[in-house]
Amino acid sequence: MAQALRQGGDVVCAVRGLTKTYPAVRGRRGAPGTPAVRATDDVRLDIRRGEIFGLLGPNGAGKSTLVRQLTGLMRPDAGRVEILGHDIVRHPERAARILAYLGQESSALDELTVSLAAETTGRLRGLEARQARAERDAVLEELGLTAIAGRPLKKLSGGQRRLACLAAALVGERPLLVLDEPTTGMDPVARRAVWAAVDRRRAERGTTVLLVTHNVIEAETVLDRVAVLDQGRVIACDTPAGLKEQVAGEVRVELVWREAAPLHVPEVAVLRERAVESGRRWTLRLAPEEARTVVATVTGGSAFAALDDFTLATPSLEDVYLALGGAARQGLVKA
């Protein structure tokens, strides 16, 4: 298999048959037990050099568990992970010397200043003192953190703290960056700084990025390829555009009613069965022909009086996820 893995040549991270099951927890008095959960189920992935590869899925899909196995933080029950030719399952400690990881937790850095968090992380990544300080200054400047370098992470807003943690992850060059929801809580300016920093590393050094996200818009705009995870399984893996082609035959219609839906109109009453209702909002996934008819119906006649707003949109990755049989109906974030 190792031969097969290397045939791609440019494959930075190859995952085969990765399986991890969390054991069942027996219920105690007052607390019900939980059955065994297969957090990753026979996962197979190839991440190529220089690409931004995304793991997309709702909360609990197994994204973080998968990433923890790729970074050597968790041992899989079965399967292989090979990063740049190194077997991470057999030698998990090598992961720390190949990749930089931005986890979801900042508690190890919370009481440090932004500056010291970045510098210390650089030192622990094996940099000499002078080099660590120089890289710290460069990264803080790059991410626009210089002004708050002397403040402890604890006192920063969620987005700023996240950015400071990313700064720590970027001090000390690594060919692979594993970023678990890096832009959570960030404003658009900070987000742009993140993607600019990632792009620069990719352009200058051919850095590969594995990105965990549950944000559909972000996935569509920044990812080269995306694996869609559902209940621990990869249910699709392609470019965002390629995935959307799978549901190209569908159009999403969103109807917003002023108060209640005009169910006295027979056409609207029929539509109700196919709509996902969320308060005054109905979401329908329809063939283009059907969509045209629906729009004609609700924009004319007595239904129009009850209509507040409507949109007609081409499919997003969220539609792909639902079309592929994703279990969570409202799991993905659009923001």
Partner: peptide
């Protein structure tokens, strides 16, 4: 408990 050890565990220290 908070997962803060991950920070150190993913550094070659």
């Amino acid at each position: 408990a908070s997962g803060g050890l991950d920070h150190y565990a993913t550094l070659p220290v």
